[in-house]
Every structure is written in C-alpha cells, then in structure tokens.
Amino acid sequence: MNVFKGQNLLEFSDRFKTDEDCKEYLASMKSEMDYKCLRCNHTACQVRKDFSRQCNICGHIESATANTLFHKVKFGVRKAFFICFEMSTTTKSLSASYMGVRYGVTEKTARLFMLKVREAMGSGGNNPMDGDVHVDEFVLGGRDQGKTGRSYDGKKKKAVTAVQLTEDGKVKRMYAMKINDFSAQSLQYIFVNHISREANVTTDQWRGYRPISKAYNITQLPSNRGLNFKALHTMIHQVKSWIRTTYSWVSDENLNRYFNEFCFRINRSQSKATIFNNLITKMVQGDKIYHKELISN
C-alpha cells in the first residue's frame, strides 16, 4: 500500500482526486486486515473493479466503506477524506459551521461526521503512559461564584487530565476525560485507562488521589498556584481555550470526543507525516457508530 505522507494540501488533493481514489485507499487498507463474510463467515473473497469485496462462496458484496466509520457517508468519500485531513493536520480550531460552508454540507451533517472522526481519534489504551506523569482535575466554564477549591459543584463540566513528560519537562503525551465528580472513584479511570502501574505519578494534595496510591506510585506535592505543574497547567489552559473559542456548546455526552481530537494531535506531534494515514486506519478499524449515539437527548 502506498501510504500518503505529509501535510501538503495540494499533494493531498492530487492524490485523492475522486471518490474512487479514496475507495481504492480504503480497499488497500482493508486488504491488510482479515476478511470474514458477514453473511456466511467465509474467509476468502475477490476484489471487484469498484474496490468492493465479494465473498467466494455466497457472493455477498462488501463495499470499500462498509464496516468502517465511512459507512453510508452521504456526501461523498472524497469530502469525508478532506475533512479527516483537515482535522488531523490542522493547527486551527474547526467548527461544524465552518466545515459545512467549506465543503458544501449542512452544519448538522458536518457535526455528525466530525463526531465520528473524534470517536476514531480516541486512544485504544494499548500503550499506557510510563515515566514521569502529572495528573490534575479542572472544570470547563470556570468556577461557580462564591465557591472555592473543589467545593464548586454546579453545572460546570468536570474533567481530569494526565500528561507524560520528557526528561526536560516537556509534554510527550496527554489524555483528558470527563468525570462526574472529584472523588477517587471518578479519578481512577484515567489511571486505569491511560497510565502504567510502573509510572511515577505526581499530583497535587487533593485527598481523592490517596486511595488510588494503593495501586499506583503517586507522589503528592503542593500545587503552589500551578508552579509545580507548569506543563500540565499549560495543556489544561490550551484545551479549555480551544473548546471555549471554537464551540458555542459541547454536550456532556460528546465532551470526551472533543478531548479525543485535541489529544490525538498532541500525541502525534512527532509523527505528523503519517498522522492522516493513522487516522484513516483508526476509521477503518473502528466500530460503526450510529447517529442516534451522537445526538444528545
């Protein structure tokens, strides 16, 4: 498979001139995966001229987009590829209204597909952070008036983030996730999902981390107004600013998907040449997700 590399829009446009070019790319990627017919479970097939796969036994035809997050994309696979390219390579904030105008689709259509892309951007949890890891919680929307510390409860969205640091104190990787409250029961999930038991974890002195220290190597230090966690607090500020200045409203149900997008680009900042191909691979391997799962009640 000839993997697309780089961030040059003109080169990307030349490579993917038609929907067929995009389907060929998806078909090449799927050919490297095990095939199993959805109808009869047979494991042998032949590739047709339109890049679909046909079962050798029952003749069932599987399109290049079937069983991927491109399944039933109604505005064309090429437009979908361009949206994926922008979301994976951009350094700007991209709203659904902007993408809708840019690609000639409705704002709702753009939003739903972008949420699918954000779903694919989530971590598989197969490579947990090790080494020096800093963890802290934050709220989106600011603190409730008249409340201090973690006593603010209100309707603000609560989240926790973890960053893995390099030897010189720079951010190597980052993960963030929504939490219901600041209890150990909620905070533990970012440890379980993203942090190795071998990591050296540093947090502030919030008591919610104490029960977790039974399973993880946690050192608690005074925050000192964030001075002891400079890199971590810089990333918190960036993700809060990114969401606040781009999106007028983010639902609780989709907040983790927005975190996925932000962290996906941060975590692949050293491999930007293949970031688009990495995203398409995750789109192909990801489970189908239906619109009703993306729309808030």
Rank of each mutant, 00 (worst) to 15 (best):
Asn2Leu: 12
Val3Leu: 06
Phe4Ala: 14
Phe4Glu: 09
Lys5Arg: 15
Leu9Cys: 14
Leu10Ile: 09
Phe12Glu: 06
Asp14Leu: 09
Asp19Trp: 08
Glu20Gly: 02
Glu24Ser: 11
Ser28Cys: 10
Met29Asn: 14
Tyr35Glu: 11
Cys37Arg: 15
Leu38Val: 13
Arg39Gly: 13
His42Thr: 03
Arg48Tyr: 01
Arg48Ala: 14
Ile57Pro: 00
Gly59Ala: 05
His60Phe: 07
Asn67Lys: 12
Leu69Ala: 00
Phe70Ser: 00
Phe70Ala: 00
Lys72Glu: 12
Val73Phe: 08
Lys74Phe: 03
Lys74Ala: 11
Phe75Thr: 01
Ala80Met: 01
Phe81Gly: 00
Phe81Ala: 01
Cys84Asp: 06
Glu86Thr: 10
Thr89Pro: 12
Thr90Pro: 04
Met99Tyr: 04
Gly100Cys: 04
Tyr103Pro: 00
Gly104Asn: 07
Thr106Cys: 07
Lys108Cys: 15
Thr109Glu: 14
Thr109Gln: 12
Met114Asn: 09
Met114Phe: 06
Glu119Phe: 11
Ala120Trp: 01
Ala120Thr: 15
Ala120Gly: 08
Met129Asn: 05
Met129Thr: 02
Asp132Trp: 10
Val139Leu: 06
Leu140Gly: 06
Gly142Cys: 11
Asp144Ser: 05
Gln145Thr: 05
Lys147Trp: 08
Arg150Gln: 07
Lys155Asn: 02
Thr161Glu: 13
Val163Gln: 03
Val163Arg: 08
Lys172Glu: 09
Ala176Ile: 13
Ala176Tyr: 03
Asp181Met: 11
Asn193Ile: 00
Glu198Val: 05
Trp206Ile: 01
Trp206Cys: 02
Tyr209Gln: 04
Ala215Gln: 05
Ile218Asn: 03
Thr219Asp: 11
Thr219Ile: 14
Gln220Trp: 10
Ser223Leu: 04
Ser223Gln: 06
Gly226Met: 13
Asn228Tyr: 05
Lys230His: 09
Val239Gln: 02
Val239Lys: 00
Ser241Arg: 04
Ile243Asn: 00
Arg244Ala: 10
Trp249Asp: 14
Val250Ala: 10
Ser251Trp: 07
Glu253Leu: 13
Leu255Arg: 03
Tyr258Ser: 14
Phe259Ser: 01
Cys263Gln: 05
Phe264Asn: 03
Arg265Asp: 10
Ile266Trp: 03
Arg268Val: 07
Gln270Cys: 05
Ser271Val: 13
Ser271Trp: 14
Ala273Gly: 13
Asn277Gln: 11
Met283Cys: 10
Lys288Tyr: 08
Ile289Met: 15
Glu293Tyr: 08
